[in-house]
């Protein structure tokens, strides 16, 4: 299963990089989304997917063992990453809108000069 997910991640990265290298700024943003999802998956996979129990401590127990459940640490990391991804996505979208409104183009090659017309 790890092999399958690893290949899936590789595919996501390939698509993401290809999108990043497009000249259209919309595709660039899609690329950022894809890559951030792929990165979350890497973190998730690094905790190991051999155990699929939920990471809670049972009602009677006082402590849990990692033997039976998914590693909680990567989950905590990803959880914040997702929400931050949401904030960043909104920011990029606003930036893109502003950029298009100001320059009237969505071609990144036209952005190569910092001076405003």
């Amino acid at each position: 299963m790890e092999l399958v997910i690893a290949i899936f991640i590789g595919l996501l990265y390939a698509s993401g990089v290809y999108l990043l290298l497009r000249r259209s700024i919309v595709k660039l943003i899609l690329g950022v989304f894809v890559i951030s999802n792929a990165t979350n998956l890497i973190i998730f996979l690094s905790g190991g997917i051999t155990r699929s129990g939920v990471s809670f401590i049972g009602d009677e127990a006082e402590k849990a063992s990692l033997e039976t459940m998914t590693d909680p640490l990567p989950q905590a990391l990803i959880l914040t990453a997702i929400v931050i991804g949401l904030g960043i996505a909104a920011y990029i979208l606003a930036l893109k809108y502003k950029y298009f409104e100001t320059t009237g183009t969505h071609d990144l090659d036209q952005l190569s000069k910092t001076d405003q017309k």
Binding site: V54, F56, L79, T80, V83, L86
Partner: peptide
């Protein structure tokens, strides 16, 4: 704190 949930999820 004890079951699925938390600030981020609830907020979203």
């Amino acid at each position: 704190h004890n079951r699925p949930g938390g600030g981020f999820i609830a907020g979203i």
